[in-house]
Amino acid sequence: GMDVRRLKVNELREELQRRGLDTRGLKAELAERLQAALSGPSSG
């Protein structure tokens, strides 16, 4: 899988935006949010 901790802030935001998620917050928050999205149930 993707290691969200290795991504830069702008990369985290890009991935979040692609999934329609909130791109605001600290890098740690963005990484946590993206990780949750990646490990969560895949819809679609």
Rank of each mutant, 00 (worst) to 15 (best):
R18D: 03
V4K: 03
R6G: 07
G1Q: 13
L34W: 02
R5W: 15
S43E: 12
L26V: 13
E32Q: 14
S42R: 10
D22F: 02
L34M: 02
L12Q: 00
R5V: 06
S42P: 13
G40D: 10
R13I: 12
S43L: 13
L16E: 00
L38E: 03
K8Q: 08
R33S: 01
R19Q: 04
L12T: 00
L38K: 03
R6M: 10
R19M: 09
R19D: 02
A36G: 06
G25H: 01
A28K: 12
E14I: 13
P41Y: 13
A36Y: 08
K27P: 10
V4G: 03
E15M: 12
R18K: 14
E32R: 15
P41E: 14
G44Y: 14
L26E: 15
A31Y: 09
P41G: 13
R13A: 03
G25K: 03
E14R: 15
R18M: 06
L26H: 14
R5S: 13
G1K: 13
L26P: 14
R6V: 07
D3V: 10
G44P: 12
R24H: 14
L21G: 02
N10P: 08
T23R: 04
G25P: 00
A28I: 07
P41V: 13
L7G: 01
L21I: 05
L34R: 00
E29M: 07
L7Y: 06
G1E: 10
V4H: 04
R13F: 05
K27R: 12
E14Q: 14
K8F: 04
D22S: 14
Q35P: 00
A37L: 05
M2Y: 12
T23W: 08
A28P: 07
M2T: 07
L16A: 02
G40V: 11
A37Q: 04
S42T: 12
L7T: 01
L7H: 02
L26R: 15
D3N: 13
G25Q: 01
G20I: 01
A31W: 10
L12H: 00
D3A: 09
Q17K: 15
R19F: 05
G25W: 02
L7F: 06
Q17R: 15
L30I: 03
G40L: 12
A36P: 00
S39L: 12
L38M: 09
L16M: 02
K27N: 04
R19T: 01
L16I: 01
V4Y: 07
E11S: 05
R6Y: 08
S43I: 12
K8E: 09
Q35F: 13
K8D: 14
R18W: 04
N10D: 10
K8L: 07
T23E: 05
R18L: 08
Q17E: 10
L26Y: 09
D22W: 03
M2K: 07
V4Q: 03
R18Q: 05
A36F: 08
G25M: 02
A31L: 15
T23K: 05
E29G: 03
E11G: 04
G44T: 12
E29R: 06
G40K: 13
